[in-house]
């Protein structure tokens, strides 16, 4: 009986992995393929055009990638700066209008971003934030904040306020409490929220395009025309790089968390 359930389990996991990995494998193969006519299972003409173009400095792909990582990193840091205190307030304190604020925070996920962005665009043009780095950073906060708050709020609900109270009872002032107790205990949650924000920001296309006005070029903007115009090879090269970037980021973050905190925080099962 046990063997049987194990087998079933393996089959299900296998199917899921196929669904997840097969499209990725196709993209990977496409990035080296000149053409791939139907009904051939594997392509016959391979080439490195896509990758050579990507590496070539004149295509500005790598510099855009680095710029994009920097931009998303900035967005992530600001998102965390806003959401750590906000999530704490929402998780632990009782105040008037809390439900309404919670609803409003999740509004960007519920309401299509396009509609929100249109209105913001007009305002940004008026105050001169359109087509600027700052403008793009600000607008990207909109989709990042809800996710970050969601994650951090549950972490705060789990930890509660007791550890902080205990630290204060032992003579720590507010700053010391945050540095030595709240932040270290919160760190795994901060890292999850941060990686979420990074990925959301990194994959923003429309918001960046609208507010950046073509002057602020991110990696996803570079990649989009190729996918749209049907240059499969180029599109696949950029897609692979895109996936590798976010994957690398996640792996680094995961390793860091494991190294520093997972063992120490075993009893807090939220890691």
């Amino acid at each position: 009986m046990k063997e049987k359930t194990k087998l079933v389990y393996k089959v299900i996991v296998g199917i899921f992995l196929c669904f997840l990995l097969l499209p990725l494998a196709v993209i990977f193969i496409w990035s080296f393929t000149k053409n791939w006519p139907w009904p051939k299972i594997l392509p016959e003409n391979f080439g490195l055009r896509g990758w050579l173009y990507f590496i070539n400095p004149s295509s500005k792909s790598i510099s855009t990638l680095i710029f994009s990582i920097f931009l998303s990193f900035t967005v992530t840091v600001i998102t965390l700066g806003i959401t750590i205190p906000a999530a704490k307030a929402l998780a632990l304190y009782r105040f008037k209008g809390k439900k309404l604020i919670e609803l409003l925070i999740f509004a960007p996920i519920i309401v299509p971003t396009v509609t929100v962005a249109m209105g913001i665009h007009l305002q940004f043009i008026k105050i001169g934030l359109a087509n600027t780095f700052l403008g793009v950073v600000l607008v990207q906060l909109i989709p990042c904040i809800p996710y970050s708050i969601r994650i951090l709020k549950s972490v705060f609900e789990l930890i509660g306020e007791d550890m902080e109270l205990q630290a204060k009872v032992l003579g720590a002032n507010s700053l010391q409490t945050f540095i030595y107790i709240t932040f270290p205990i919160l760190l795994p949650g901060v890292i999850s929220a941060g990686s979420m924000a990074f990925i959301v920001s990194f994959s923003q296309y429309f918001l960046t395009f609208l507010i950046g006005g073509g002057k602020i070029v991110t990696f996803s903007m570079l990649m989009f025309p190729y996918i749209q115009s049907g240059d499969r090879m180029m599109g696949s090269v950029y897609s692979v790089v895109f996936i590798l970037t976010t994957l690398t980021f996640l792996i680094i973050v995961e390793k860091l968390t494991n190294k520093f905190y997972k063992n120490k925080l075993k009893e807090h099962n939220y890691v």
Binding site: M163, Q166, A167, L170, G171, A172, N173, Q176, Y180, I181, P184, I185, Y261, K264, L265, E267, H268
Partner: peptide, 16 residues
């Protein structure tokens, strides 16, 4: 404090 060992836990108040 889950992220501190016994020594640092006991010494916390003194460190503060």
């Amino acid at each position: 404090f889950p992220h501190l060992n016994v020594e640092d836990n006991i010494g916390f108040g003194l460190k503060m």
